[in-house]
Amino acid sequence: MKQPAIIVEGVSKVYKLRANRNLFFKFFANQHKSKAPLEIQALTDVSFSLDQGDVLGVIGGNGDGKSTLLKILSQVTFPSAGKVSLTGRVSSLLEIGTGFHSDLNGIDNIFINGTLLGMSKKEVEARLEEIVEFSGIGDLIHLPVKTYSSGMTMRLGFSVAAHLDSEILLLDEVFAVGDLDFQAKAISKIETLFKRGKTIVYVSHDIQSIRRLCTKCLILEKGRVKRIGEVDQIVNEYLQNNRPMV
């Protein structure tokens, strides 16, 4: 019997925009002419549920609410209405290398980044060797991160992220890092993560990776759930409706 891991019920999100309050600006600009909206409805009544071990791929165009959904699940922003219930430790990867400090060396940054993502210091210590090894940064790990190339920084960030052991992972297209060799390594690492029985929500534009990695698929359109179901069926429908313009 599968246990529910995530239940999303009627979640909506409205971003309220603030008018410019600069006194001088108000005086000079004729605000009646402005047609800019004061609200953006990013999500409308989104509901779905995931069991433990489900891997959900979320697809949709730009501005359809994918990132907002991930941000709500990871508590970075809060829903305007609705409710989300989660079981298990949640780690969200909306960005790689969050909180890296350029003056600190690789090791220090692994610790800060790992604890930011919800690991304890002990857990980071236990995986430290593996993380350094996987990043392929070698002895440079003892130098400040500002001496790294941007690709190396990304690889280090990815390595920390790939060694998270939370029950729920929220991922926002984090694969395209490093050179080709590292990308291949990263993808196989992610695949083993995906197959370890974790509950994963994965946002991506890459339909192929969704088809390969996910068990379920959700299509967002203008902030609403358009379709949700088994991955093959949904992806096929999606591809038929959105033929790439060649």
Partner: peptide, 15 residues
Amino acid sequence: MNTKKEEQWDLIIKP
């Protein structure tokens, strides 16, 4: 669908 009570979840996100 919602078979669990609130206390059984680790985290509830509300507005």
